[in-house]
Simulated assay, not measured.
Amino acid sequence: MSKECAFCGKKPQVGNLVSHSNIKTKRRFNPNLQRVRHQYADGTVCTLSVCTRCIRSGKVIKPVVSKKADA
């Protein structure tokens, strides 16, 4: 699974981890990806890795789960 958002394309960024003595080592800033089910306009449902900002902004349309009534 790649660490990339399916909607906005957000990927890991690199930066420095700075210690108390100001020694710098490389580190990665990973995006906060969640696996969510997304419903497309034609009705198909697919599981995607999406960042939390895209979930919050409404780019992800979650499918409606219908409860079956017990007869």
Rank of each mutant, 00 (worst) to 15 (best):
S2C: 10
K3C: 09
K3V: 15
K3H: 08
C5T: 09
C5G: 01
C8N: 07
K11I: 10
K11P: 05
K11S: 10
P12K: 13
Q13P: 07
Q13W: 06
G15F: 04
G15V: 04
L17Q: 05
V18G: 02
V18T: 13
V18N: 01
H20T: 01
S21M: 03
N22S: 10
I23W: 01
I23C: 06
K24H: 03
K24F: 00
K24A: 14
T25N: 14
R28M: 12
N32D: 14
L33N: 12
L33D: 08
R35T: 06
R35I: 12
R37C: 08
H38P: 06
Q39F: 11
Q39C: 10
Y40R: 14
Y40P: 04
T44L: 00
T44R: 04
T47L: 05
L48A: 08
L48F: 02
S49Y: 05
C51T: 01
T52N: 12
T52D: 10
C54A: 06
R56M: 00
R56L: 09
S57I: 06
S57L: 06
S57P: 00
V60R: 02
I61H: 15
I61N: 15
P63G: 07
P63I: 07
V65T: 11
S66W: 03
A69S: 11
A69T: 08
A69P: 04
A71L: 14
